[in-house]
């Protein structure tokens, strides 16, 4: 099978063996049904062993899988009447972020998300899903528009991070990200964010201040990529695997830290194995969040969001003080 990952190789090999045996039984008179059954039980066991005990690095691999479903794929399965809006109205149209208006179960919403490419050509056009300032500004423009027309906002987060480039700095990358955080805090409509792939640094957070933050089971959310962290901490980017384990970047980790609200389950082996089924899992969580948020008034929405971020962080006032007074 194309695109198999290192850690799932034993599963793939066993599966191949079974299909070979099946073929063999069909083409000859030898009956191997018992053998096949045995192998299939073993496969099931192996699958649950491997997929239920995924290491952070395995999840990183799934989150980066070239076939991992993108924002536009989820949009086409979850929404109707999508009309894409381009441009920040001042400098350019950043295709690393897509956004527009659509209907979710008949209800008007604004949908925004990072967009990776599916092949090299598209990836170049979309800058591998790494936005420039005009991308964040487009997103903000659409959020303000949603606020004007009282539409809930749904954001899909899927980026390695903000693009570290010269042009991005010249056009105010920091200001653009900061502005989004600031303005998203004050949006008077429900905001639901879902990390669907990699959630990398400020580039991810610029679409990530909401009433609910959900994560797909095998997505990651972190201040920096494991490679980047390894390079900074240990001056060796090959220690990425170790960094992935130390940095607490998986959905269960973030749930444990109280940063995200819900983990959206993935189909066995990752979302790319069955996009339609995955969309159904996503649909359920989005519907639940929508119905919870749609009944809240503006003030409650704002204070809920405020409290959500206020409680993040860890500190203490020890009884026996050891610092500087």
């Amino acid at each position: 099978m194309a695109g198999e990952l290192e850690f799932e190789k034993p599963v793939m090999e066993l599966r191949k063996k079974i299909s070979e045996l099946k073929e063999f039984t069909q083409n000859t008179d030898v009956d191997l049904t018992a053998e096949i059954d045995k192998l299939e039980t073993r496969l099931q066991k192996l699958e649950s062993e491997i997929y239920e005990n995924m290491k952070p690095w395995d999840r990183v691999q799934i989150a980066r899988h070239p076939n991992r479903p993108t924002t536009l794929e989820y949009i086409s399965l979850l929404f109707t009447d999508f009309f894409e809006c381009h441009g920040d109205r001042s400098y350019g149209d950043d295709e690393a972020i897509v956004g527009g208006i659509a209907k979710f179960h008949g209800y008007p919403v604004t949908v925004i998300g990072h967009q990776r490419g599916k092949d090299t050509k598209e990836n170049i056009r979309r800058n591998f899903g790494m936005p420039h300032p005009e991308g964040y500004r487009k997103a903000l423009r659409l959020m303000k528009q949603a606020e004007k027309f009282k539409r809930p906002i749904i954001c899909f987060i899927d980026t390695k991070g903000a693009y570290p480039g010269k042009a991005a700095e010249e056009r105010g990358q920091s200001e653009a990200i900061a502005r989004n955080l600031f303005e998203m805090a004050g949006l008077t409509v429900p905001v639901i964010c879902v990390v669907i792939g990699e959630g990398g640094s400020g580039g991810a957070l610029a679409l990530g201040v909401g009433n609910y933050i959900h994560m797909l089971e095998n997505s990651t959310y972190s201040v920096i990529s494991p490679e980047g962290a390894a390079a900074i901490l240990w001056k060796d980017s090959t220690l990425a695997k170790k960094a992935a384990e130390t940095m607490k970047i998986t959905a269960p980790d973030l749930k444990g830290l109280g940063i995200i609200d819900e983990i959206i389950p993935e189909v066995k082996g990752g979302a790319h194995k069955d996009l339609k089924q995955q969309a159904k899992y996503m649909d359920k969580v989005l519907r639940d969040s929508m119905s919870e948020l749609l009944v809240l008034d503006e003030e409650t929405l704002l204070s809920q969001r405020y409290e959500k971020y206020k409680q993040i962080g860890e500190f203490s006032f020890p009884t026996e003080f050891i610092g500087v007074k």
Binding site: G106, Y107, S291
Partner: peptide
């Protein structure tokens, strides 16, 4: 299509 999305009184269908 755009006008349709902006019609008042949208309902959330279940």
């Amino acid at each position: 299509g755009i006008l349709e999305i902006h019609q008042p009184g949208g309902t959330f269908e279940w």
